[in-house]
Design a binder for these strands. Structure first.
Ligand SMILES: NC(=O)c1ccc[n+]([C@@H]2O[C@H](COP(=O)([O-])OP(=O)(O)OC[C@H]3O[C@@H](n4cnc5c(N)ncnc54)[C@H](O)[C@@H]3O)[C@@H](O)[C@H]2O)c1
Ligand SMILES: NC(=O)c1ccc[n+]([C@@H]2O[C@H](COP(=O)([O-])OP(=O)(O)OC[C@H]3O[C@@H](n4cnc5c(N)ncnc54)[C@H](O)[C@@H]3O)[C@@H](O)[C@H]2O)c1
Lengths: 226, 226
DNA sequence: CAGAAACCGTGAGGAAATTCACAATGTCGT
DNA sequence: ACGACATTGTGAATTTCCTCACGGTTTCTG
């Protein structure tokens, strides 16, 4: 998904075509929940729980149990009627589906306040995410390391991103550089970006961007203050 | 919204009742977009643009122009046919609707890696958000200040939150303290929480929680890597 | 081993959100 | 003053997502 051109002539990008040879269409919301299930299962595993029901899984996440079952059923039959799901088994399956059964390699661009916090976040490693490299354009930062991650010159981004086989880019630069950096990342073959910058990114349909926008979250919370 | 009890007897909490005396029901997604519009309008204002069409607004956010118009129409008639919307006027209206026409007072709980980055983030002030106080339970941090914000003992949370007339709480503590801190905040009268902790919070229906969950974002991006 | 209990998978129905499409309304140039 | 044009506001159609409800399967109990 990217731009919607509702008014102008329909672009002949294959992306908006009726239904590609894909099997079934899986809602984006389902994927996000898979990830939530995965984490709950990880906790259950630590608690040495062998089995879990859709009901319990749902309760631990504030969801409806039918939704849990339906979400999982998109990908196969993992449950045992009368019993529930086997924790480890289900977790492994979900990890495989999400592609997190191997380490995910990340590149961080912009090592400022936020970038630094991300570099020293232990939670990522716990989930199998590895920030392999970081980039900045500030001379004083280039060449140094933070949280065991080497900081490279943003000018060398394309080369290093390819070399290091990066999967996902993290954007944490000032707003007025976001689009340009985004394009560098795409140019380097990246097609998944996590964007912390409060700016809309224009990207081809093949590239996935997830936005994390704190101001939006706070502002919209403000609306609900009675 | 909080727990869904799909299986057990319907709880007689007034929250799930058919339709309270509310006027029209405004989708949550609309509120989030209002906030996006507000920011784009702020940029347009800086560029000295007087007017803007729903089409342009949509293009700048990757949305459909009909959606922009419909969103705004929930709250009144702000546009002028054949012309568009007056930038400053619309912006002021949206800020009024969101309640951001006055400063929003925030309390941060947990001044670790992430909390520190948040304290030194200039972007908040720009949007009219003010982190008024911070809390931690680490002796070495209590009493000091970071980014001009005083750090208090978490034990005094209730008293200070009331005293300082805090609107929204920000949760950035370790996962195993999240639910307890959340309850302290609610006990102190808070009913809007921004939660960075990767854990589900159980709260009464009257309390709004927005989740910011980085691992989920990365994990779900991973799914889309081809 | 029979009957009860637990729980999954899923079709049908519903609710929510988005997009379409167009009549209505205004602007602007001449 | 008027016709050409731009753009809004909104019912209707569409799409996306969620919940209900139940048949069917497995386990458990006595
Ligand atoms: N700090 C926060 O808590 C926070 C919260 C929400 C959003 N954000 C957003 O995240 C982004 C970064 O915030 P921050 O507080 O870390 O800012 P910052 O100014 O501390 O850091 C930005 C870093 O990006 C580097 N940089 C600038 N241009 C670059 C380029 N072209 N290529 C590579 N690196 C470049 C700078 O040298 C700097 O180190 C901003 O867009 C901000 O709005 C930050
Ligand atoms: N650092 C990141 O980039 C990042 C990213 C995503 C999510 N998170 C989440 O945010 C939370 C904080 O992360 P962090 O990296 O800042 O951790 P951290 O350990 O650096 O900081 C946690 C802080 O909370 C304080 N604390 C602990 N219990 C408390 C209590 N009961 N009341 C008040 N303060 C208390 C600790 O003293 C510490 O200062 C974690 O749940 C983490 O999973 C962090």
């Amino acid at each position: 998904m990217s731009e919607n051109n509702p008014d102008s002539p329909p672009t002949p990008h294959a992306a908006t075509s009726p239904s590609p040879p894909t099997e079934k269409k899986i809602p984006k919301a389902v994927i996000k929940r898979l990830s939530l299930y995965s984490r709950v299962l990880q906790n259950l595993e630590i608690m040495d729980r062998e089995k879990v029901s859709s009901r319990e899984l749902a309760a631990r996440l504030g969801l409806n149990s039918a939704q849990v079952r339906k979400d999982l059923a998109y990908f196969g039959q993992f449950g045992v009627p009368g019993l529930g799901y086997y924790v480890s088994d289900l977790r492994q399956n979900i990890k495989r589906i999400l592609g997190t059964d191997r380490a995910i390699r990340l590149a961080l661009v912009g090592v400022g306040n936020l970038g630094t916090a991300l570099l020293s976040y232990a939670g990522f490693a716990r989930q199998g995410f590895h920030i392999a490299v970081a980039f900045d354009c500030d001379r004083r930062k280039i060449g140094s390391t933070k949280g065991n991650v080497r900081i490279y010159d943003a000018a060398d981004l394309a080369r290093i991103v390819r070399q290091e086989e990066i999967d996902i880019g993290i954007l944490a630069v000032p707003a007025d550089h976001a689009q340009a950096v985004c394009e560098s990342l795409i140019g380097a073959g990246i097609n998944a970006i996590l964007n912390f910058v409060p700016a809309h990114l224009s990207v081809p349909d093949s590239v996935h961007v997830h936005y994390v926008d704190l101001s939006i979250e706070i502002e919209s919370l403000s609306y609900y203050l009675r």
